[in-house]
C-alpha cells in the first residue's frame, strides 16, 4: 500500500485492510503512487482475478534483462499483439499517466483560473474606480491648474501597476508558501510553481490592469475642470 494512503488511514506494516470486500495484511509501503485523483495498492494477481471475477488485467509490469533496450522490447510487444496490448517504456508510461491526470483536472483548474481572473479584475477595477471617484475633486483641481489628460492617465496607470504588482507578488509568494505547506497537510497533493506560471500570472495581471484602468481614465477625460470654482 502507498505510504500516504496508509498514513491517512492510520495504518502501518502488519495492519489489516479491506480491499474489494476481502481483508488483506499490509506487507509493504510504497512511495509516490498517490496523486490527487487516485492511489495504487498492490495485491497478488490471483487474488485480484478471484475478487473481480475476471481474468483481464489493466497493467503488467515487465523488467527487461540486462543488455536489452526497453524501447525495442516495448515496440516488439506492441507489434506482436496488435491493438490488444500497448507496451510503453517507463518514461512514456509516466508521461501518459500525467496527461490523463491533467486531462481529468484541467477543466476544473481552468474554471478556477477564470473565476480568479474575473474576481481579480472586478476587485482591481472597483478599487481603481472608487479611488478615482474619491479623488475626483483633486483630479479636477490638477486639471484646472493645467494638468493634461495624459498626465492624469499616468496617475491611474501607476496606481493600477502598483496595485497589481503588489497583488501578483503577494499571490506568487502565497502559492510558493502553499507549495511548501500543502504536502504536509494534504500528502497526496503537490503544488508546483513554475516560471511559466509566474509569467502567465504577470500577463493576466497586466491584462487586468489595462481593463481596470479604462473606466477611471474615461472618467478623468470627462472631468470638467471648471467644477473647482463651484464649491
Amino acid at each position: 500500500m502507498d505510504g500516504v494512503v496508509a498514513h491517512s488511514l492510520g495504518l502501518g506494516l502488519g495492519d489489516e485492510v479491506e480491499i474489494l470486500g476481502e481483508t488483506f495484511t499490509i506487507a509493504g509501503l510504497t512511495e509516490g503512487l498517490t496523486n490527487i485523483i487516485n492511489s495504487v495498492t498492490f495485491i497478488r494477481l490471483q487474488d485480484f482475478q478471484r475478487l473481480s471475477g475476471s481474468e483481464a488485467v489493466s497493467y503488467a509490469l515487465l523488467k527487461v534483462k540486462p543488455g536489452y533496450d526497453p524501447g525495442t522490447v516495448a515496440a516488439a510487444i506492441t507489434a506482436r499483439n496488435d491493438d490488444d496490448v500497448n507496451a510503453l517504456t517507463r518514461p512514456d508510461f509516466a508521461r501518459e499517466e500525467r496527461q490523463i491526470i491533467q486531462d481529468m483536472s484541467v477543466e476544473v483548474i481552468n474554471i478556477m483560473n477564470l473565476a480568479g481572473l474575473l474576481i481579480g479584475l472586478a476587485v482591481t477595477a472597483l478599487t481603481l474606480y472608487t479611488s478615482t471617484l474619491h479623488k475626483r475633486r483633486e483630479y479636477g483641481v490638477l486639471k484646472a491648474i493645467g494638468a493634461k489628460n495624459w498626465q492624469l492617465y499616468t496617475v491611474v496607470i501607476a496606481q493600477a501597476s502598483l496595485s497589481l504588482t503588489l497583488g501578483a507578488g503577494l499571490a506568487i509568494a502565497l502559492v510558493w508558501l502553499l507549495g511548501l505547506v500543502l504536502p504536509l497537510a494534504i500528502p497526496n497533493a503537490a503544488l508546483a510553481l513554475t516560471g511559466q506560471a509566474v509569467i502567465r500570472v504577470g500577463l493576466a495581471a497586466l491584462l487586468m490592469g489595462m481593463i481596470a484602468a479604462l473606466a477611471p481614465a474615461w472618467q478623468m477625460a470627462r472631468l470638467d475642470p471648471a467644477q473647482v470654482f463651484r464649491g
Binding site: E138, V141, K143, I145, G146, A147, K148, V228, G231
Partner: peptide, 20 residues
C-alpha cells in the same frame, strides 16, 4: 489651454484645494 493655465495663470481657491 492647459499649457496657458499652467504657465500664465495661478489659481487660488476658496477651499484651498490642496492634494490631501
Amino acid at each position: 489651454l492647459p499649457e496657458v493655465r499652467l504657465r500664465r495663470i495661478g489659481f487660488v481657491f476658496q477651499d484651498f484645494n490642496l492634494l490631501s
